[in-house]
Structures are given as structure tokens and as C-alpha cells.
């Protein structure tokens, strides 16, 4: 090395060497940091512009935006409550449908099926996540909505019709149909996170249960489900976060009505669906600003939900805790 330098040491070479060595490293690092900062700036710009655009509506309605029930673009009366309510109802209903199925499928894949078969099933479930929202919307509009109208609604009315949520006429499109579509769309999210949670249960815990004379079901309850409780909660909350923001499929099947109705058969609207449906046509400044305000609220809600999900998964899971402990030991 030294030898080479004394032989070939011309001024240009040494500069080139400097450029490609420590100096080059510095340039590369600063360049990358600049890009990273630019991406950060982009996120801040997004939030800021969203806030600025909502400012008119925020000044006009303040927190009353969430208490009054009128959304009337012609009278320039705006309130996000119907959409907040619609988002909440559809997302919770979707969770009620999807969470048990997802958790069961995840167990089936990690602890019951042979490895190869489990992988195939897992792949199929993940394919659901790859289908674009618009395709689900199309399917919901032309396939699911008629089924809800002609089969599911009569069934629910005849069995649970005494409940106000199952009363009133059904047009096929409405809160229930939207919730079913949402449930399908969040299945892969909850399933794949739950799979990761279950997979982190050490084999020796499962064997401990079996060695005590537990059946498979008891082993799963004892060694898999119980320590995974917070992990599953995190997975479900993440699914909730995904349901909150889902737009197109919901916008196509929910019926777009800003009236709050107790019946699940009635049409409704969510925060994202009202933006999708009205934004392009919103001409008045206050209308546009109110839609942005709705968007800002939606952003904040999903942000809180997603971050709490991550927090639950990584902070409170006993498995993650004992794994951390193992690492230290």
C-alpha cells in the first residue's frame, strides 16, 4: 500500500483518492441526510397545508364541528358528526366480523396446519390485501349489495328484527354492506399481525402445555392465546386503523347519506367517503374547507389509532417482554 503510493503519487491521484475516500463518505452521508430531511419536510408540509386549508372551517365551527348533525352544502351548514359516526359504526362492525375470523385463521396457520399448507393459506389471505379497493367496491355494488338486500336482510329481520339496528327498509347499499366489505379488507391485516404474534410464542411453551396433558385446544388457549392477548389487541387496533381510512369500496356501497340512522340497513357516509364524493364538486370555499377539516380529523384519528396499536404490540406483549429479557440474559 505504502509502496504503491510512493510509486504513483501524482497530485491528481491523491485528490481522486481523497474524493473517493473519507471525503466521498461525507458527501454521501450529507446527501442522504438531505433526502431524509426532505422526506420529513414533505410530511410536515402535508400536515401544515391540510391544517391551513381547514382553517376557515375551524374558525367557523370550532369544536361544534363534532356536535351538530347538519351537513348541508347549500345552506353552508357543516358538521362532521354524521361522518364520524358512520366511520365509527362501519369500522367497529367490520372489526366484530373480521377480528374473530382473522385470529382463528392465524392460529390455524401457525399451530394446526402443516407448515407448507399453512404458507399456502397465508399466501391466499395476503392476496386479499393486494386486491385494489375499487375492485372490492365494484364487487360490493353488483354482487354483495343484492345479496344483502335479498338474503341477509330478511334473515336478520326475522331473527333479530326486534333490535332497532335491524329495522327499516334495505336498499342493499348501506352501512351493513359497507361494514362487510371493510371486514373482508381488514382480514389480511389482522391475520398477518396475529400470525407474527403467535409465531413468537416459543416452541417450548407449547410443549410445556402438551406435556401437562393439554389437548391441542387447551394448549393453544394456555400457551398461545393467553400470552398473546396484547399482541392480538394490537393487531385488531391496527385493523381498526386500516378500516377507518378505507375509502373507495366504502364510498361505492354505503349510499352516501349524511343522516344518522339507527338502522344498519340505512345508507350512511364515512369521513373518507364524503371527501371522495363531494370534494371534486365542492365549489364554495367553506364547503371545501370543511371537507379538509374532515380530512384533518380523519388523519388525526388514524394517527392516534395506528400509534397506539404499535405501542400495545411492542410494549405490553409478555412475549415481546420475555424476548427482550432473553436478549439481555
Amino acid at each position: 500500500m505504502l509502496n504503491q503510493q510512493t510509486h504513483n503519487a501524482t497530485p491528481t491521484k491523491s485528490i481522486a483518492k481523497k474524493l473517493s475516500g473519507a471525503y466521498g463518505d461525507k458527501v454521501a452521508k450529507v446527501f442522504m441526510q438531505t433526502v431524509a430531511l426532505a422526506i420529513l419536510a414533505l410530511l410536515f408540509l402535508m400536515v401544515y397545508l391540510l391544517f391551513e386549508m381547514s382553517l376557515e372551517a375551524i374558525k367557523e365551527f370550532g369544536f361544534g364541528f363534532l356536535t351538530s348533525t347538519d351537513w348541508d352544502p347549500i345552506m353552508e351548514e357543516f358538521s362532521a358528526l354524521p361522518f364520524f359516526y358512520g366511520t365509527l359504526v362501519t369500522s367497529i362492525l367490520a372489526l366484530l366480523i373480521a377480528a374473530p375470523i382473522s385470529v382463528m385463521v392465524a392460529i390455524f396457520i401457525t399451530d394446526i396446519l402443516p407448515v407448507k399448507l399453512g404458507q399456502v393459506l397465508g399466501l391466499f389471505v395476503e392476496m386479499i390485501a393486494a386486491i385494489p379497493s375499487i375492485v372490492f367496491g365494484l364487487w360490493g355494488l353488483f354482487f354483495l349489495a343484492p345479496i344483502v338486500r335479498e338474503q341477509i336482510t330478511p334473515l336478520l329481520k326475522s331473527t333479530l328484527g326486534f333490535l332497532p339496528i335491524f329495522q327499516g327498509p334495505s336498499f342493499g347499499i348501506g352501512v351493513l354492506t359497507a361494514s362487510i366489505i371493510l371486514a373482508i379488507m381488514i382480514l389480511p391485516t389482522i391475520t398477518s399481525i396475529s400470525r407474527e404474534v403467535f409465531k413468537s410464542v416459543p416452541q417450548h411453551q407449547k410443549e410445556a402445555a402438551l406435556a401437562l396433558g393439554a389437548t391441542r385446544e387447551e394448549m393453544i388457549r394456555l400457551a398461545v392465546l393467553r400470552p398473546s392477548f396484547s399482541g392480538i389487541t394490537g393487531a385488531i387496533v391496527l385493523g381498526f386503523g386500516r378500516a377507518l381510512g378505507e375509502t373507495m369500496a366504502v364510498a361505492m356501497v354505503i349510499g352516501n347519506s349524511s343522516r344518522i340512522s339507527a338502522s344498519l340497513f340505512a345508507p350512511g357516509a364515512t369521513m373518507s367517503s364524503v371527501i371522495a364524493n363531494e370534494y371534486a364538486e365542492a365549489s364554495a370555499g367553506l364547503h371545501l374547507s370543511s371537507l379538509c377539516y374532515v380530512g384533518l380529523l380523519l388523519f388525526l384519528v388514524t394517527l392516534v389509532v395506528n400509534s397506539s396499536a404499535r405501542f400495545i404490540v411492542w410494549k405490553f406483549s409478555p412475549i415481546a417482554r420475555s424476548a427482550r429479557k432473553d436478549k439481555r440474559a
Binding site: 417450548h204 410445556a208 402438551l210 406435556a211 400457551a223 400470552p227 409478555p318 420475555s322
Partner: peptide, 21 residues
């Protein structure tokens, strides 16, 4: 095997009490 394991107990290499219990 479930019934059998109630009659033959086992202690493992790594201590493995059930977490959350």
C-alpha cells in the same frame, strides 16, 4: 397422548413457566 401425558410428566431444558400466569 393427552391422557398419557397426565401420567408421564416432563421438565424441560429451559425453564418454561407460562407467561401471563
Amino acid at each position: 397422548p393427552v391422557e398419557l401425558r397426565q401420567n408421564i410428566g416432563m421438565v424441560f431444558q429451559k425453564p418454561n413457566p407460562f407467561p401471563a400466569l
